[in-house]
Amino acid sequence: MSDPTTMIELHDVHKSYGHLEVLRGIDLQITKSEVVVVIGPSGSGKSTMLRCINALEPIQRGKIIIEGTDLTDSKTNVNQVRQKIGMVFQSFNLFPHKTALENVMLAPLKVKKQSRGEVEKIARDLLVTVGLSDKADNHPDQLSGGQQQRVAIARALAMQPDMMLFDEVTSALDPELVAEVLNVMKDLALAGMTMVVVTHEMGFAREVGTRMIFMDEGVIVEEADPREMIANPREERTQKFLGMVL
């Protein structure tokens, strides 16, 4: 906890929905500029873990600490902590009643109360970064899935977060649109962003990931360098899973 470069800490995190225990004791530490790739079969708890890190789901036991702030402490202002964490969802979740530019501008305007001019400049710059400066005035339903997802990334970045969570962000995309989103994520990683990426994209994991985590049945089964894990998985469950996806 004393290490200032520690961004995310999970200590013995348990999460259940009724009788179904989805996370069964997760311990994880993520330091600055790491790109942690989380893989595992569906229902293994990957997405739930991500949602717990962002306090979208309450946990039943354990601790989650974001940059030294204990999320499980009832005195913690969750909204403030969330501002440091950007999140991108599988289903984009852009605001359909707003244009791409307005989507990116909304949170900085209302949460950070920055001036409109300042926010618009940041937002336009971000749309340039994700390659969508010409789509600023389009509504989400006029954009392709890949474009929507890039707007969603820009929207999260507009709050200038210290870390980003990606929840299977390419799973809902047509195959030809996956690359444009992964490229934006790759640039982000190269720029030093701390990232936790739940994905099935092994190419991306191998190229960009600094650490790989294999989850199954609510626990972390194996942890290693992505290239190492993909080439020589130690655990039998990891071998079986990688055998199926590769």
């Binding site: 969802f89 605001f95 949170a107 949460v111």
Partner: peptide, 11 residues
């Protein structure tokens, strides 16, 4: 997802 996206932005 709309509420979640908004909350995840710190709103």
């Amino acid at each position: 997802g709309q509420m979640e996206a908004a909350r995840s932005l710190g709103m």
